[in-house]
Computed example of a mutant assay.
Amino acid sequence: MGLIMKLVRVIYVVYAAIIFLGIMFLILPPIFLASLLGKEKGGNIIFYFLRFWAHVWFPMAGMPVRRIYECAPEDKEPCIYVVNHRSYLDAAIAVKVMRLPFRPLGKVEMSKIPFFGFIYKNSVVAVDRSNAPARARSVREMMTALKAGISILMFPEGTTNESDQPLRPFHNGAFRMAIEMQIPIKPVLYLDAGDRLPHTGPMNLNPGKCRVVFLPTIPVAGLTLDDINDLKQRVYEVMDSALRKHRHYPSLQHAG
């Protein structure tokens, strides 16, 4: 039985990969044309093609994506989405569920992947964390997007969370930008992405539900840079509490 299940898993992963690549190559030509229109206008058009890709791929891969709102309906003002990071599926889920237009912050290394890298670098704000001037350029690009009414999506943990706890410690970037730009923060939770595509590798991709929880917006009006740590802690506690409500996690062990 174990051998049969392994064979079924391999067949499923190959099937999902073929669908993934097939749709990607289908939308590559119009994405190339849209990229000629520039980062702002062209980037917004590109996201409609990416949304088409996501709306086709997730159901065909047996991963129904469901939004859960624990807040009032979204308004149309730009915001900074802060999202927990469990899986390489996270960016793809964002394309399917986030209100357009938006730009995710992503690792520059992903832009080196053949074909996919072209789509990636034209649809995200890529950041090279090892290069200070490159980080500064990424910040300027995000600020330009926000001024143009384009929301930003950031993973405040900085990297995928491979622990048994809901969240890793947060970095300051999203909260500094929110305060400097006076842009509200919208916490969002991906409940099942880590189950669908664990960090153990792509061969562990599996079908199943993908729930996305939208939490109430956290305003930053009137806050100053002196309030970064308080704001970061507030958002962390809101997201941690909501994740624990929706999923079971081991209790933290306190010394003493």
Score class of each variant (00 low, 15 high):
64 P>W: 10
65 V>Y: 08
58 F>H: 06
73 P>G: 05
47 F>P: 05
98 M>R: 07
91 A>W: 03
65 V>D: 04
47 F>G: 04
54 A>Y: 02
78 P>W: 07
58 F>G: 02
86 R>F: 04
52 F>P: 14
68 I>G: 04
96 K>S: 13
43 G>N: 00
71 C>Y: 09
84 N>Y: 00
71 C>K: 11
98 M>G: 05
64 P>H: 08
53 W>M: 06
85 H>F: 00
55 H>A: 15
48 Y>H: 15
65 V>A: 03
43 G>D: 02
42 G>H: 02
95 V>Q: 11
38 G>C: 03
41 K>F: 12
80 I>P: 03
94 A>N: 04
44 N>G: 12
95 V>D: 08
89 L>M: 01
38 G>N: 08
49 F>K: 06
96 K>E: 11
78 P>K: 12
48 Y>E: 10
85 H>Y: 01
52 F>S: 14
63 M>T: 01
45 I>N: 10
91 A>E: 02
79 C>E: 04
89 L>T: 00
70 E>P: 05
87 S>A: 02
81 Y>K: 01
64 P>K: 05
85 H>W: 03
68 I>W: 05
42 G>P: 09
55 H>I: 15
63 M>W: 01
44 N>W: 06
75 D>F: 05
69 Y>P: 14
49 F>C: 11
58 F>R: 02
53 W>S: 04
44 N>H: 09
69 Y>V: 09
53 W>T: 05
74 E>S: 15
62 G>I: 07
41 K>A: 13
64 P>M: 09
47 F>I: 12
67 R>E: 13
62 G>C: 06
80 I>E: 05
84 N>A: 02
95 V>E: 08
58 F>S: 06
95 V>W: 12
92 A>M: 04
84 N>R: 02
40 E>Y: 14
83 V>G: 02
50 L>T: 07
38 G>F: 11
86 R>P: 00
67 R>F: 09
55 H>L: 15
46 I>K: 07
57 W>R: 05
53 W>P: 07
62 G>Y: 04
50 L>P: 11
84 N>I: 00
49 F>I: 07
95 V>M: 13
85 H>T: 00
61 A>N: 08
61 A>Y: 00
37 L>K: 12
41 K>P: 09
43 G>A: 06
66 R>S: 15
59 P>T: 06
69 Y>S: 13
53 W>Y: 07
73 P>Q: 06
73 P>C: 07
89 L>G: 00
47 F>V: 09
85 H>R: 01
88 Y>C: 04
75 D>G: 07
50 L>S: 10
98 M>S: 08
72 A>L: 15
67 R>C: 13
52 F>T: 13
56 V>W: 12
59 P>A: 12
74 E>L: 13
87 S>E: 01
81 Y>D: 06
38 G>E: 05
68 I>S: 03
57 W>Q: 08
78 P>A: 12
46 I>C: 08
37 L>N: 06
43 G>I: 03
76 K>G: 14
90 D>G: 00
88 Y>L: 08
56 V>M: 13
40 E>L: 14
56 V>C: 09
46 I>L: 13
75 D>P: 04
82 V>S: 05
74 E>N: 13
90 D>I: 00
66 R>T: 14
61 A>S: 06
87 S>R: 01
70 E>G: 09
59 P>C: 10
67 R>L: 14
75 D>N: 11
37 L>C: 09
96 K>T: 04
69 Y>R: 15
83 V>F: 03
49 F>T: 07
69 Y>A: 14
76 K>M: 14
54 A>C: 10
97 V>G: 02
95 V>F: 12
